[in-house]
Amino acid sequence: MTTDPGLWAVPIAVLGGAIRVSTPFLFVSLGECLTERSGRINLGLEGTLILGAMSGYGLSYLTGSATVGVLGAALVGLVYGLLHGWLCRFKGVNDIAVGISMMLLGMGIAFYFGKPFIQPTAPRLPSIPFGWWSDSPQLQAALQVNVLFLIGIALAVFLAWMLRSTRIGLTIRVVGDSTQSARALAIRPDRVRLWATAAGGALAGIGGAYLSLYYPGSWNEGISSGQGLMAVALVIFARWNPINCLWAALLFGGAGALGPALQSVGISEGYYLFYAAPYVLTLGILIATSSTERAVIGAPGELNITK
């Protein structure tokens, strides 16, 4: 990469960063969106994300195939989501408390089993160069797009369609909005929530695999830095709409790329403040969108935080 100090490099780097950084946000938030639409919150997705990163990286290293790594991470996330869903079935169990403990548990498991994978290099996911038409190396670098990002976009569209036009989608919305109505319709809310949480977990697992197998592209204990938790805030910001999750993930990704982008153009002072941009954004959005005098629009009625 050339060290062109032109400021135009910042928006390009932010664009590239938005695409690169947003993918795990996108997967986790789509997963959380699905889970929350069924009326349950899974705060454990931070743990699932790290677990997915570790297992994806480990499997990729052991089998030599990054694809196997991604699928394995999805499976691990699914099982971990099932555990959350199963625990929440019991009377008096609070999904938020279970989520927090599962977040810590997931991190612990990942750190314990992940120790041997910190050093070795695993095969990484390939990317598609969409910047071939340009001779600017910055633009070419920015437009290196991973397949998972494209899958994520397709998934957002698919989920939006599913919630509107399939029986499964309607069932999830019924359960999320009113347990009582669901029972009256002979739908079993616990089972729907179990599988919605499991599917959400699988998506978060894929997000984790992206972290360790593409960007930043290695396994270490600080890999997620709270992205799983931010994705939960992002779902609220996105008003529980999968398509909005896509835009919100891009926004968060762009904010996350601001710090590195400023650093890359040679701004050496104060740029680290911009590393905090996603966290400030999370806080700012939650304050801006909340009100004591206004009901949250679009929130599933059975959700623990909006009840």
Binding site: S165, T166, R167, I168, L170, R173, V174, D177, L185, G301
Partner: peptide, 30 residues
């Protein structure tokens, strides 16, 4: 018909009717 409504508030009237039927196909042809 219960005293408290058993309709799902965030669904449209049409969606409520279709989901109540229980035998709707996996993909709903709106």
């Amino acid at each position: 018909v219960y005293q408290q409504f058993t309709l799902v508030p965030s669904l449209s009237a049409a969606e409520n009717l279709v989901i109540a039927r229980g035998d709707a196909g996996a993909v709903i042809d709106w």
